[in-house]
């Protein structure tokens, strides 16, 4: 087999990317549990662990640069490396949003949330599912699955709009709720961004499979 070593390196790279993805997914889930259960210790853990996510992203980037410099990749190899580079950046930013949610939870301190959290966990679930599916599409080189991720973003956007309107009515009704409402609005915004970045990953998968670079992010936000 010609280029067996290169193929092994590409495989390792993808495995590392997927494991970064699952770290990010856990961070998002934990940030929500911390928020919902008012578990500040868990929230602090999410903040600490984000450093590790950042490190992993840089490590992936270095591996890509090494392979580009030493292997002169073209065609599918080049597209794979470019996709990994982009996706690693997207994942790292998603980790930052999880960290942002954890920080809000810490800022809220002992204060109870303004309202019971129902739509926000739903948004989180949809966003993490989008992340999972985009990474599955990557592993399976599945263009159709990647396109579905993109469509799922609309549902997250709808939920975000719904939460926004609801929080707005709280604030109009009673200005003393503004601070607590704003916390939840930030959380919802972070989740909306996470879903957007999952669609960015899906776009990179489409690029990897087809060579087509398309700005398909149809999010209204």
């Amino acid at each position: 087999m010609v280029r067996a070593d290169f193929d092994r390196n590409l495989k390792t790279l993808q495995d590392d990317l997927i494991s970064l993805g699952s770290m990010v997914e856990k961070a998002v889930t934990k940030s929500l549990i911390g928020l919902k259960n008012r578990d500040l210790q868990l929230s602090r853990q999410v903040v600490e662990e984000d450093d590790y996510i950042d490190q992993q992203r840089y490590q992936l980037e270095e591996q890509c640069i090494d392979l580009i410099a030493t292997q002169q990749p073209i065609a599918i190899d080049l597209r794979t490396l470019m996709a990994v580079l982009h996706i690693a950046t997207e994942l790292e930013r998603m980790g930052d949003y999880a960290e942002g949610i954890a920080k809000i939870s810490i800022m809220m301190g002992d204060e109870p949330p303004l309202k019971p959290l129902i739509d926000i966990p739903r948004m989180a679930e949809k966003a993490t599912t989008m992340l999972q599916h985009s990474l599955d599409a990557l592993v399976n080189r599945d263009e159709a699955a990647a396109l579905e991720v993109r469509n799922a973003d609309d549902e997250v956007d709808d939920l975000y709009e719904q939460i926004y309107r609801e929080l707005l009515t709280y604030m109009i009704d009673d200005p003393s709720t503004i601070q607590r409402a704003t916390y939840l609005l930030w959380v919802a915004h972070d989740l909306e961004r996470i879903a957007d970045r999952a669609t960015n990953i899906a776009e990179r998968v489409i690029f990897l499979v087809t060579g087509r670079l398309t700005g398909v992010n149809v999010s209204q936000y």
Binding site: R3, I74, A75
Partner: peptide, 19 residues
Amino acid sequence: QITTNPEDERTEAYITGRF
């Protein structure tokens, strides 16, 4: 196009050094 996204898999295999 050939170097980023060749249409034929034989082209791809050749230019990426798989044969």
